[in-house]
Design a protein around this nucleic acid. Sequence first.
DNA 1: CAGCGCAATGTTATTCTATAACAGTTCCCG
DNA 2: CGGGAACTGTTATAGAATAACATTGCGCTG
Lengths: 160, 160
Amino acid sequence: MTAGFDPHDHAACRRAALAHAETVCREAGVRLTDTRRRVLEILLEDHRALGAYAILDRLRDEGLGAQPPVAYRALDFLVRHGLAHRIEHLNAFVACAHPGRGHAPIFLICRSCAAVAEAPAAPVMAALGSAAQDAGFAVDHAMVEADGLCPACQGAGQGA
Amino acid sequence: MTAGFDPHDHAACRRAALAHAETVCREAGVRLTDTRRRVLEILLEDHRALGAYAILDRLRDEGLGAQPPVAYRALDFLVRHGLAHRIEHLNAFVACAHPGRGHAPIFLICRSCAAVAEAPAAPVMAALGSAAQDAGFAVDHAMVEADGLCPACQGAGQGA
DNA sequence: CAGCGCAATGTTATTCTATAACAGTTCCCG
DNA sequence: CGGGAACTGTTATAGAATAACATTGCGCTG
Ligand SMILES: [Zn+2]
Ligand SMILES: [Zn+2]
Ligand SMILES: [Zn+2]
Ligand SMILES: [Zn+2]
């Protein structure tokens, strides 16, 4: 169920994510405007995190807006609707790789090739919930991000 | 074993952390200089995360340095030696609340009063390791941060 | 259709966070 | 007393994010 590292039909992956985004927006009664859609498409180009300014550069090249708020507003929208996630450790954003399921994902981030995978969160969240309960803490949103090496980069013997 | 939310003798807590810092530095053959020590003391004032610039303001008031690198270098040092931790979600730093034990802690962050607790990491890390293994991913360093409400702020019925 | 209200956009400016680069100083050890 | 490494001071700049406000587009209701 981990999505991201394994080879797959990424064109289908993208199409599904985009179709899902349409559905989500229709059902929520919000608009998937040109800029929002384009930002999602850019993020969907591969399973990699992009900084807001990298996205902004792309938008600028395409004449869709040149100022930071343009990118940040679209990203906020996508994150708010579960279509993208923010990677705290990188100050960057990644398209959601699990169209459909409501989730608080955990991220595996390759420090060599920068690929980002979403892994099944349930066991980790259960352990976290238990630790939080012991402390009397009410978890609102959990962020779990692991730095390391993806299968491909381990094979290549990368050290950094 | 969660350290941070429960009422405790914080003066002793601080003293122990400082003493531990001395030991760690002596054993590692590195120097706990004035600035480094002072930054640690500031972080130890309570179990709360402080931004690098908030710390820098304090240092400036005390004549210990006025430029960002002063604060960042001290913080890097403390983090490198396990005496403080960086909270990615807040772009801020907190003193380590577990003097002595080698750990990759998990953090519980109150979004109302900004208190930060360190909870036992083992079960969460085990679950994370298992998920990573399923994906063939080699975890190097894991970041686990939970946003929510601490016991005190839940009682007060805080919503934000 | 006219006009209202809200959502979304465009733009300027600013704040906050973090690091690069280099010159000078202090400390430890031989 | 050197010599080298660690540490400090300072300038400048890069990078990430938001505040604030004017404007435009869109959907609804009268
Ligand atoms: Zn894909
Ligand atoms: Zn990789
Ligand atoms: Zn304490
Ligand atoms: Zn609280």
